[in-house]
């Protein structure tokens, strides 16, 4: 990844965090879980950003895909002892299949249909998880076995922390590579101008579906990891409220940017945890922030942080450019 100056220190800090928590010693397990959970949420934010920020398609039911992934992993683990990698992969795959069924009719016509259809999907997954208790445990939820990964026991908070961290790094690299190759450029082209994209040979409708399916796969895989991390899944973890949280992460972080999605996930997760005791508070703050970001800081956190740096590099480039910009 470029900008090693930022990413390398961030990864190092994340890598030594358990050690620091160990030294401080207080409530180590709790904080490890909070940060691990954040890593998983950040994967979902990245997946939603791939769809919304990169391809310009809205999803209001991303927690539905997380739920499909989490329940798939939990059921496979509880019944057949499938491990973390298998659970995450199966969860992602099932979420991808679900998204294919939704995406094919919903992306064909108007953009907002996908928003409404995903909203309905999120609610439906919730309802079905509650109702189909023979499979999902209903409102009692479902417990998983101690997590293993490729035969290794990763059932301690520290090990799960590293699993979640590595998953986030892998997801970041995958999405980053995708956006820098042919398909990722097609996503952006479809967002910017459908007509020009088609004229360049990009099949608009199917490209939208592919973006949606990719996004759902990642969200489902994150759901699978989440199930192992929490050791337990229940419907209330995946309601419409958490879909809105993911949505807020992407918008506040700045659409169309992976660091933006991760930064947005930090802010939103922090607000959610800090304001958890007063009902309505986090919703009001995040809603207000979204409105303010859209009106006054289009580009979100990413643009805000980059503004200073960008000014410098633009000047540098202009100075080096042999073509006068005003020619």
């Amino acid at each position: 990844m470029p900008r090693y100056a930022v990413t390398v220190p961030v990864v190092i800090i994340a890598a030594v965090l358990p050690l620091v928590l160990q030294l401080i010693g207080e409530r180590q397990v709790y904080w490890l879980f909070v940060v691990s959970e954040f890593f998983v949420f950040a994967i979902v934010a990245i997946s939603l950003d791939l769809l919304m920020g990169r391809t310009g398609q809205i999803s209001l039911g991303h927690s539905g895909f997380v739920a499909v992934g989490a329940y798939t992993a939990a059921i496979l683990n509880a019944r057949f002892g499938v491990d973390l990698l298998g659970g995450a992969f199966a969860g992602g795959s099932l979420a991808a299949i679900a998204s294919l069924f939704l995406g094919v009719p919903a992306t064909r016509l108007r953009g907002h249909y996908l928003g409404i259809v995903t909203l309905g999907f999120g609610i439906a997954v919730d309802q079905i998880a509650l109702k189909w208790d023979a499979l999902t445990g209903g409102d009692q939820g479902l417990h998983l076995h101690r997590p293993t990964l490729l035969g290794l026991d990763v059932g301690t908070p520290v090990l799960m922390y590293y699993v979640a961290l590595i998953a986030l790094i892998v997801a970041t690299l995958l999405v980053w590579s995708l956006t820098r190759t042919r398909l990722g450029r097609a996503f952006a082209a479809v967002k910017d101008s459908e007509i020009a994209a088609a004229a360049m040979g990009v099949p608009v409708a199917s490209t939208k579906v592919v973006a949606f399916v990719c996004s759902a796969f990642l969200a489902g895989a994150a759901g699978g990891i989440y199930a192992f991390l929490a050791g337990f899944v229940a419907p209330e973890d995946f309601g419409i409220d958490s879909s809105l949280l993911f949505f807020a992460m992407v918008v506040i972080g700045g659409m169309g940017s992976i660091p933006g999605a991760i930064g947005g996930a930090i802010i939103v997760d922090a607000i959610k945890n800090a304001a958890a005791t007063v009902s309505g508070l986090s919703l009001a703050i995040l809603g207000g922030m979204i409105v303010l970001v859209v009106l006054f800081f289009p580009g979100g956190l990413k643009a805000l942080l980059r503004r200073h740096a960008a000014k410098r590099t633009t000047l540098d480039r202009t100075r080096n450019a042999t073509v006068p910009l005003d020619a």
Binding site: G56, I58, G280, A284, L286, G287, G288, I290, V294, L295
Partner: peptide, 30 residues
């Protein structure tokens, strides 16, 4: 947001939805 992409305008209505529900929840409880 005149002239902004439709996605942006839809996003602002979603933010407003969250804001209104949150604020009335704060004021009157659930």
């Amino acid at each position: 947001l005149n002239g902004a992409p439709i996605l942006t305008q839809v996003v602002v209505t979603l933010g407003l939805f969250m804001f209104l529900e949150g604020v009335l929840g704060l004021a009157f409880g659930y």
